[in-house]
Amino acid sequence: MKAYMARRIVQMAPALLLATLVMFSMVFLLPGDPTVNLMGEEAATATPEQIEAFRQRYGLDQPFFIQYTTWLKNALQGDLGRSFRNREPVTESIATRLPVTLELALLSTVMAIVIGVPAGIVSAIKRNSIMDMFVTAFSVMWVALPNFWLAILLIMVFAVMLEWLPVAGYVPLALDPVGNLKSLLLPAFALGSHYAAVLARQTRSGMLEVLHQDYIRTARAKGLHERRVVLLHALKNALIPIVTLLGLHLGRVLGGTVIIETVFAIPGMGLLVIASIHGRDYMAAQGAILVLVLGIMISNLLADVTYVYVDPRIKYS
């Protein structure tokens, strides 16, 4: 197991390297002077001296390969360079934004599990009931719902019409825990409900597959309470495919924050990516995307590892 994890981590390195190289070279593949491209709107009004100063300040006068290796060396030491716009160290702006996104991701995952798994269980044990039909229909349709439209509808109903929750914005946890929860409730739901729908379908089919197996009959035959049979014996095995989905879900959530944080104006990683791209601040965009991709790779790895704990029959070599 340890050897497997070590190999997986080693395999992540070339993938990440490839990702950085692609991102880094894209700016240089654009037609025109990279410095002018990177300066964005500033370049239009800048004097040749100012452009030259910008070029030197960010080391853009160096050959591409030197620039890339310098950036990479610094990145490995935790220094992702300075923003082209406000000169702020990219690592610092990521450090303040990452916790916000992680909180949002965590809350959305918890919401998805709390909604999706029970819905799937009920759906499976009351197969072909009205409840089952309802859960199935909902989960099939929910998958087609664009998350930003769901976010808009949620704002319309809960913030504009009912005025229960704030329209947008973020309240830090340390400042006001209740306000924090209120500010994240709608975004977390918009982000996680898709996963809840997938979970409900997956839990249902997993449970149905497990429920007529011999060991379930044995558990029933020895007189166990039905609740114990379902929750302890059946669910544990039905959970296996759900764990794999968790890794994919975390990837989706980290990608989805780009949209949801924009809609709700939450100062997390997603908003940083979008704001940097709109502002042509490639240094910041590239750092933020790199951190998101790393997060996704780690969550995929964690999903594979938890797989083994849920199902000891699976062996990695």
Binding site: A19, V27, R252, G255
Partner: peptide, 15 residues
Amino acid sequence: YSFPTILLALVIVAV
């Protein structure tokens, strides 16, 4: 595949 699709599309379009 490990890139979230929207993020990858975003990078391509941004560039």
